[in-house]
C-alpha cells in the first residue's frame, strides 16, 4: 500500500514517512496541496495511494483546500485523508472533517498515536492478515 505525505517541512515528511514505512507503506511525498494533486494526477489508478497525511498550514495550497479539492475528484473517492497538523482547536477539527478528512492527528504525536489512527481507519498493513 502507498501513502502520500503532504507537508511543507522536509523534516516532518521524513519523520511521518519513517513511521509509515515501519507500518509497511510505500511513501510518496509532496510539499504542498497543489504538488499533492499533481502527484496524484500522475498516478495510474492502480498506483494511487490509499492514504494521504495532510498538513494544514502550507504555502501555495493549504491542507484544507487540498482536502476540498480531492473530495471533488471521483477518481480519488477511495483515498483516505488524515490531517496531521498543529491546528488543534475544535472548530478547526470540525472544519477539516466537514471538508472530507477522515481522521485528525495533532502534532506533536507519537508513533503509537499514528498506529492507533491507522488501525481505526483499517489501514495498518502490519495488522492485516495476508
Amino acid at each position: 500500500m502507498r501513502a502520500l505525505v503532504i507537508d511543507d517541512s522536509r523534516a516532518m515528511r521524513m519523520m511521518i514517512g519513517r513511521l509509515l514505512t515501519q507500518q509497511g507503506f510505500e511513501i510518496l511525498q509532496a510539499g504542498d496541496g497543489q504538488e499533492a494533486l499533481d502527484v496524484l494526477g500522475a498516478c495510474e489508478p492502480h498506483e494511487l495511494p490509499v492514504l494521504c497525511t495532510v498538513d494544514w498550514n502550507m504555502p501555495v495550497m493549504d491542507g484544507l483546500t487540498f482536502v476540498q479539492s480531492a473530495r471533488k475528484r471521483t477518481e480519488l473517492r477511495d483515498l483516505t485523508l488524515m490531517m496531521v497538523t498543529t491546528e488543534s482547536e475544535n472548530h478547526q477539527v470540525v472544519r477539516a472533517l466537514a471538508a472530507g478528512a477522515h481522521e485528525y492527528l495533532i502534532k506533536p504525536f507519537t508513533a503509537e498515536a499514528m498506529a492507533d489512527k491507522l488501525d481505526l481507519l483499517g489501514l495498518d498493513p502490519s495488522r492485516r492478515v495476508a
Binding site: 517541512s9 523534516a11 498550514n57 497538523t85 498543529t86
Partner: peptide, 13 residues
C-alpha cells in the same frame, strides 16, 4: 526546515 518545523509545532500549540 528543522528549526522552523519545531517552532511551527510549538507555535501551533
Amino acid at each position: 526546515d528543522t528549526v522552523g518545523e519545531l517552532v511551527n509545532v510549538v507555535g501551533g500549540n
